[in-house]
């Protein structure tokens, strides 16, 4: 499904702030794979998601999605088939527009070829949106004409998740999407993620700072350090692995301790 081959990216090349964020990184995801990524601060986790989503063009290497090379495709074209959530719950929605208008925008990804840009949100669309909103279990289906700016961070992140998957993407990128939420809400959004990804068999790449989450969610755990993937566990090996085991493997793989301030503070 996703094939990343020997991708490198250096920011601020030739200045004192030069930083190699991705270094000859390769990664293949099979259809339906749900991989979680953990790693030290500055290991290149978010940069990897940015490279896939097209926030910048990589310096070398190639990225292909579902057999199509997207290395030089602009980000707004990639977003037709790639959904993305950020840590900041405010980034994925337009605050002064209503819930239904936000959903209508997200729905553009599917209907672009089929409907004209001058068509309006129809009754059928609204019913479809209400039905989808019900799945979130937050009562948002009764507030469809309210501006999104009135929602809480958790509600906005859940809505963003719904928007990113309203049209089933080929790949879903989650960049610590529950890290800025309170524990209860984070748990709820995570559960919704699990359900939506499983129900639609979405290939998913999730960055997290929670080691337990990285072992519990999905079927693969990746560890990054210095712009590379240093550990990739799945199957039986992963099933029997504990957080301590994961840390030991990390030390063995990189020769130093895992260093992520948020990771050490979280349970």
């Amino acid at each position: 499904m996703l094939r990343i081959d020997h991708v490198s990216k250096t920011f601020n090349l030739g200045t004192v702030n030069e930083k190699t964020a991705l270094s000859d990184l390769s990664l293949h995801l099979k259809p339906g794979d749900f991989a979680s990524i953990i790693g030290s601060n500055g290991a290149g986790k978010s940069t990897l998601l940015g490279a896939i989503a097209g926030s910048f063009i990589v310096d070398s290497g190639s990225i292909a999605l579902d057999g199509r090379d997207i290395t030089f495709t602009p980000d707004h074209r990639r977003s037709v088939v790639i959904g993305r959530l950020f840590q900041d719950p405010l980034r994925g929605t337009a605050p002064s527009m209503t819930i239904e208008e936000n959903l209508a925008l997200a729905y553009l990804r599917s209907t672009k070829e089929r409907t004209s840009p001058f068509s309006r949100i129809g009754k059928k669309d609204k019913e479809f949106f209400a039905e989808k909103l019900k799945l979130l279990g937050m009562g948002l289906e009764d507030r469809m004409r309210q501006p999104v700016g009135l929602l809480s961070g958790g509600q906005r992140q859940a809505l963003t998740l719904l928007m990113a998957t309203l049209v089933t993407p080929k790949l879903l990128l989650l960049d610590e999407h529950t890290a800025a939420l309170d524990p209860g809400t984070a748990e709820k959004v995570l559960e919704l993620t699990r359900i939506i990804v499983a129900d639609n068999h979405i290939t998913c790449l999730m960055v997290t700072h929670n080691m337990k989450q990285a072992l519990d969610m999905g079927n693969r755990t990746l560890m990054m350090a210095g712009g590379r993937i240093v550990l990739d566990v799945s199957g039986d090996e992963r099933a029997g692995m504990t957080v301590d085991g994961l840390l030991r493997r990390f030390r063995a793989g990189t020769g130093h301790e895992l260093d992520n301030d948020r990771m050490l503070l979280s349970d």
Binding site: S79, G92, M97, P117, F118, M163
Partner: peptide, 23 residues
């Protein structure tokens, strides 16, 4: 109120989101 109109409104509101809606 059209789809194109909505995209224009969202552009002033949240440009990132417009990009991720394939516009």
């Amino acid at each position: 109120g059209t789809r194109l109109g909505l995209s224009i409104r969202a552009t002033g509101d949240n440009r990132d989101m417009v990009r991720s809606s394939s516009v």
